[in-house]
Design a protein around this nucleic acid. Sequence first.
DNA 1: TAACATTGTGCAAACGTTTACATGAACTAT
DNA 2: ATAGTTCATGTAAACGTTTGCACAATGTTA
Lengths: 340, 340
Amino acid sequence: MTKKTTISDIAKALNTTAATVSRALSDNPRISDKTKKLVNDTAKALGYAPNPVAAALRNGRSKIIGVIVPYIDRSFFSSVIRGIEEEVKKHGYNIMICQSLEDKDAEAENIDILINARVAGIALSLASNDESHLKKIINHNIALVTFDRIADNLAPHTVAADDFEGSYLATKHLIDQGYKRIAHLAGSQKINIYRNRQRGYRAALEENGHEIDNDLIISTNSKVIAGRESAETLLNLKNPPDAITSASDFSALGALQYCKSKGIKIPEEIGITGFANEPFTEYLEPSLTSVSQNTLEMGKIVGQVFFDQFNTEEQQTQYKKILLKPELIVRKSSLRTINK
Amino acid sequence: MTKKTTISDIAKALNTTAATVSRALSDNPRISDKTKKLVNDTAKALGYAPNPVAAALRNGRSKIIGVIVPYIDRSFFSSVIRGIEEEVKKHGYNIMICQSLEDKDAEAENIDILINARVAGIALSLASNDESHLKKIINHNIALVTFDRIADNLAPHTVAADDFEGSYLATKHLIDQGYKRIAHLAGSQKINIYRNRQRGYRAALEENGHEIDNDLIISTNSKVIAGRESAETLLNLKNPPDAITSASDFSALGALQYCKSKGIKIPEEIGITGFANEPFTEYLEPSLTSVSQNTLEMGKIVGQVFFDQFNTEEQQTQYKKILLKPELIVRKSSLRTINK
DNA sequence: TAACATTGTGCAAACGTTTACATGAACTAT
DNA sequence: ATAGTTCATGTAAACGTTTGCACAATGTTA
């Protein structure tokens, strides 16, 4: 059980004081170069490593970024988390992860924990529409970045995929492929991102001279089974769609399964697109066209936004609202260039 | 920017000292019940929340478990991480996540960071066979649990899936389904888990009167493309297999793709099983039989092992080597009860 | 009633930094 | 030679806990 060396040990070795050592190590201009060299050399010689806990206590701030997500093991979130980790690591920071389990109270509790841990910042994908508990973070002067499910009102900085654009791209792609009656599996309209996806769908239709038929818009949850049911409803219409653009890969998968079970050919008779580019989409038969949200990139940007803040001198009135360009990953489920 | 209340604030309010308040809050038997109640009440009234940073400095130990994995966004690891998080949260601990990127040096660096952060324990899935840098952890008297890719020699406590058993189960299942010539896509034999999977395959064959044909064992990496190539090799043998049990879902997927491309019927003409129960397996066509490693459970157990250690009075000579029972998830790719 | 144990609390140091303020030495300007 | 600057370092307090030791007040025993 080797005892760690401290700045005092270095000071003792050099017959100086901890203050000087501390200043030398942080490259304070008031310390002579000679002393700095001396300090750095003996620090190395003694195997000195700073104690972040002591620094955090003194500074009232840890070099930790807290991250709160609904579930760690959703591929979307784990990928964003990875991005955040890689970015903050560059600056000598670490991440502390919490799960909200989609529950507002658990989220509030996690916020308290992170505030108490004196984190330097909190990255958060909201569990619900209720963002009132975020005030605390701001009151404690802790940097806050919301991502994906962002807090429009309270959070100064936000990072999200451009859902409107993503959905627009997918819908436009179906139009370009010659599909005429394009349906939309919309997620819960209480949630921002799903509203935007529906808006993108509508905009693409309108701008390209397709009329909007409300019978073709089904509000559903993002489950496979819901996708199957919705597809059944749609295909039993007297004027059924020839394409489905879904706000979720899972409901798109359900639709795909239903069509296959009925012998409806994809993409020849019906085109399908999903949203999020879940890992499974590329392995489906046919592979599913989907909208990639560049999740790793999103995480890195979230990280960057923190350090942009930290570096600019406090007084922040410019808030960053970043929208990331999504990318349409075209696969077989929507590609029928043959018989356009 | 509300100032946090401290134990001294409580002490002042009650005309006593921080020492008494600290003891009262930690339910020290030397404090009278009357005082305890008084302290707890005013703590609540003043909105007191303990400062974990100060406690960590004083104790030389944070209520943090460090977790090091190759990549956060692999579904296996994100799921284990979730399990760890949920378990340690119960005890008022948090997790700090690092990535080794499969690199031994990055792993060693992360270990240093976590040691400096005075974490109470480190959970780690090894980046390489080299475990020499783990000594540091033990020397600093920090609890160490390795999981999945475990450190057999140095790490006192290990948690892993029973790879032998999982592979045995898959192979036995194929035998029970009446497959006669069962091939094995083996991962790199430098890695423990893949060696064990091959052993399970061999044992199942031997114990059930199947002879082992080394032509049917292909050592490959765990990529889709490698699976395709291996399947091609196998099916071009003059005496080709009628089943493939793979040590990886990805190479199993490759094999499945190859067979389909050649019009070979699954599971009628060839049975296929994978390993790890990746999320995509259930959505394949046909859905892929695979071995579930109960990753969430694995994470929870990892967490438990820490607190078992913390609770028993230090002197630990009994090391826990936990092997989790895997579960065979039977799906269509291996199920041909019809024409057994 | 003296000696002793028990109970509840206070005192003060320690964990390892950081930083406002003080100090002394050398240097510049008058 | 005196006052004012500048430079490099030292002093000491602070961050908020925890805990060994001391101590006074009470209760117990002989």
